[in-house]
Design a protein around this nucleic acid. Structure first.
Lengths: 272, 272
DNA sequence: ATAATAGTGTCTATCAGACATTATCTG
DNA sequence: CAGATAATGTCTGATAGACACTATTAT
């Protein structure tokens, strides 16, 4: 606190007392959270979606999320949401991007701060207040399409993608433009959030330890490699991969199977 | 639009008509923008700051910024701000991070979406509504301190930095904790925004063309290398640097001096 | 034994780091 | 010419890509 006076002759204390915050129109701000994990046999990624129980986008599948409260950070709101959905705490959770396009929510002016969470293994999803349902969807993301599938519920959501590049100053961006191909769709602009998160994840995976968040605390190298490959959606050479991660690993001493079928057992590791 | 009815028997149209958005408390949302450019002799970076003319943080230097309006995106708000300050349009402008800590603004609940802009060369800064003053500051950012200096105005703002690492799931982050060392300080949490932006810029500079935003449309290789070195705050080997950028360049055919002092003239290039 | 998977060896091309040398300009 | 800067040459060590080979397990 200082005692300088402003043009109206008010100190900071006086100014704050008379300050009227009600002059500007304010947006609602929510967090939307992408909860991503490996599927049962480590052959691909899964995304947690909830089914909306009310307008707008009633009966559509959507990213879990909720309003940020006045006494919490966006991170805390996202962590709360994550725990409500999965029961998990102490999990990788990172801010991706903030979406602000006017009209993205037909109800009112709503901005959304998107978070990405990478969870180790699948868990049962809990019930949820506003949601009719919650379920893991198989996530296939490649250069030409996004496919979200839940066979149990008979739901398939497909967007075709078109790459488009545009300039930001001297920097050229590659962007994916989605076009809906199925009856079912994701609510709001949640496809765009998904695209942005997957782009960022792919850029960072080699320079971070994000892939380690997708496997258990102790893991085998075939499992870890599967996590990298699922994120990148392309195969990696075994030897190069192992050379790359080798200095991040510590052997646990035990061995176990990575695979249900035949073959040798794998050494177990933990992250150094 | 679909005609499904919700639990209360309302269609989407009816629901939206009766929807009352006023139940939640809403934050104000602003954009704060880091405008960064090279200094006169390409020996370092400069940051554009404005001097606050009112409480809170009266007479403190701060990042330019302003409230987002209902009919615009955060990007548009930042671009508007950038043009008001510098007169520049069609400039590199990218969302960095959204700051939401409760209490970061003593007036009321305010979130800030931070943007980074990289501008080619220094320009005169224009006047500004709420600001008493606006000026370019020399920016020195290294592992142990941040220094912002404007010799003309006799202003020096210094923070010492302490590296701290913390875990986010399996991912370890390196964070800088700032401690103020001078009378003068940056307003609000603007040091933290600056730190976040510089961290991101340094991570991305090698995998993007951001450095090209800091030089003119036609540039020499000594100038471009100086831009990389100013961002990274360390020297690069000339040959390796030139090999790295060579495939991004086109010669213009002309030559000119890069330096005020003696020495050979440099070839001019543009970005491919 | 055979199929399947885990793990290692080795060659190559690329590239950043490091340093040396040549080229061109000013005074 | 000397001093300064621009541009290029070359060696080295690290590493990703590519492929081949050995090791271990289930049936």
């Amino acid at each position: 606190m200082n005692n300088k006076k402003n043009k109206d002759g008010l100190t900071e204390k006086q100014f704050l007392k008379q300050y009227n915050p009600g002059n500007y129109k304010r947006p609602s701000v929510t967090t939307d959270i992408l909860i991503i994990g490996m599927n049962e046999d480590y052959s691909g990624l899964k995304l947690l979606l909830i089914k909306r129980g009310n307008h707008p986008y009633i009966d559509c599948w959507a990213l879990p999320g909720g309003f940020i409260e006045e006494n919490e950070t966006a991170y805390q709101a996202a962590a709360r949401e994550l725990e409500e959905e999965t029961g998990l705490t102490d999990i990788y959770l990172d801010q991706i991007y903030t979406f602000t396009k006017p009209g993205r929510d037909p109800r009112t002016w709503v901005m959304s701060i998107a978070y990405l969470s990478l969870v180790p293994r699948l868990r049962e999803v809990k019930g949820f207040d506003d949601a009719e349902d919650a379920a893991w969807f198989d996530l296939e993301f490649n250069d030409s399409s996004i496919e979200l599938t839940n066979e149990e519920k008979g739901v398939k959501i497909v967007y075709s993608l078109k790459k488009e590049s545009f300039l930001n100053g001297a920097v050229r961006y590659e962007n994916y433009i989605p076009t809906l191909k199925t009856e079912e769709a994701l609510a709001f602009d949640h496809v765009e959030i998904l695209i942005e998160a997957m782009k960022k994840l792919r850029e960072q995976i080699f320079y971070s330890n994000q892939a380690f968040c997708l496997v258990d605390k102790t893991f085998t190298l075939p499992e870890l490699q599967a996590a990298y490959e699922a994120v990148l959606n392309r195969p990696l050479y075994k030897k190069s991969f192992r050379d790359m991660v080798s200095e991040k690993l510590v052997e646990t001493g035990t061995e176990r199977r990575s695979n249900i079928k035949g073959g040798r057992t794998s050494k177990e590791y933990t992250l150094k």
